[in-house]
Write a protein that binds this DNA or RNA. Structure first.
Lengths: 235, 235
DNA sequence: ACAAACAAGCATGCAAGCCTGCATGTAAGT
DNA sequence: ACTTACATGCAGGCTTGCATGCTTGTTTGT
């Protein structure tokens, strides 16, 4: 497992590198370029030629590591998910203590959904509807992202264990809102501020349901109490 | 292949039509085919050739009416929006009286969002993010759809006049949820039922905020939620 | 009313461009 | 020497827009 340092555009002098280093470097270059390409020119604009160009490698090198376009995209998705998870956790860790709460977490999540990598994922998700091959790669993408969010949140708010029954639908509602907002945000970048307004509303609600970790020690401890995390609380 | 025009009106597939009729017919064929194409094979799969093939007209005819691909798509969007609005109103009118309420309306809206035309719009919305030309056509698409929904709902629930201030964000929240759900639905067609669960939750909430028009005489709280129509209940 | 002239609808072929995958050849590491 | 990483050229397929020619409807002159 190559553990190259994150994301940098470092081009060290091309001295003598081990095969593993060469391999790893080229692959990272290619995968980053793929994500960037998806985010900037969309799925239909993402060609292996363009990816290779952005990565600064030859088409031959690209084909050597990822013989087909699908293998390239497949690897890029894994690359992307792992990188996003790390970025989110790191960002949360660096958050000032007073924002170590659900609101801060949702703000970060919103940032994630507006980031280029997330837009790359949206491109893939939408495109995979009509592309059988791509669909095979993205079929479980929804659940994976959902699971990623769930895991991270549980890790960040270990004591806020909502009843297992209420989590799925509630979380999925939140997820749906974020996806919907991100689609619109991808279009107009929220020049009108509407998306922000919706998001603010959502944060307010979440704050009511998930108190700050610091304050929750003496308060919420009921097992089945907080039934609705999402907008709906009936049923 | 040619139909002899000598003998007057025969059992030809098409008799003598006025130019306006020919024109209108071919255009409708093309626009419907464009929407169908977008819905079935996505933006990247929608080529003028494929549209012409599906419409059953020649490429020349297509180019005659819509010289460039963008003009074709532009016309298709207008065609689509108008058609969807009519379809939604007609569907609501045919709804059994006992479902002439907000829940029935939302069910229909959910059907709309899952329909092929809506998926065509989603394709365009996502693609226009990275396509400058397309973006020019779709820049106000969000607001237009939102306005369409708003108009229709006001027409269907004339007495449910929510305070003007609360409508925008609340409606946009609902809209975001539907967009988000439709993205996911486009992927897996809700084989798991999660999207339906989220939608059900949403309907329950809406029913609390917007009572049945018929039954609101006995309901005392039809003015209850001026501040929170969406999931968020004010701050 | 008829026929010629005109315009509009429609069909087909072509050129330029791009994308993908392959196949061959070269350089670098083991 | 031998494998791996990398570079470049080629072939087939597809898309878009244009140009040319044919068919059908409409108009106009007599």
């Amino acid at each position: 497992m190559p553990v190259t340092s994150g994301g940098g555009t470092e081009v060290a002098p091309v001295g003598r590198r081990t095969q593993q280093e060469r391999r790893s470097r080229t692959q990272t270059l290619l995968l980053d370029a793929t994500v960037e390409c998806l985010a900037e020119v969309g799925w239909s604009g993402t060609s292996t030629t363009e990816v290779a160009r952005r990565a600064g490698v030859s088409r031959g090198a690209q084909q050597h590591h990822y013989p087909t376009k699908m293998e390239l995209v497949d690897a890029a998705v894994e690359h992307l998910l792992e990188r996003q998870r790390q970025a989110y956790e790191a960002a949360f860790a660096e958050l000032p203590p007073e924002r170590h709460n659900i609101e801060g977490a949702l703000d970060l999540l919103w940032d994630v959904f507006r980031s280029p990598p997330a837009r790359a994922l949206l491109e893939l998700a939408v495109a995979s509807r009509t592309d059988a091959e791509l669909r095979a790669l993205c079929s479980d993408l929804n659940d994976r992202v959902l699971q990623l969010i769930l895991d991270t949140f549980e890790q960040l708010f270990p004591r806020t264990h909502l009843p297992d029954d209420s989590i799925p639908t509630a979380l999925r509602t939140v997820y749906a809102v974020y996806v919907g907002l991100s689609v619109q945000n991808a279009l107009d970048d929220d020049v009108s501020g509407h998306q922000r307004a919706v998001h603010d509303q959502f944060k307010s609600l979440a704050r009511l349901l998930i108190p700050d970790p610091d304050a929750d020690a003496r308060d919420t401890r009921h097992e089945a109490g907080p039934q609705g995390t999402g907008p709906g609380d009936s049923h």
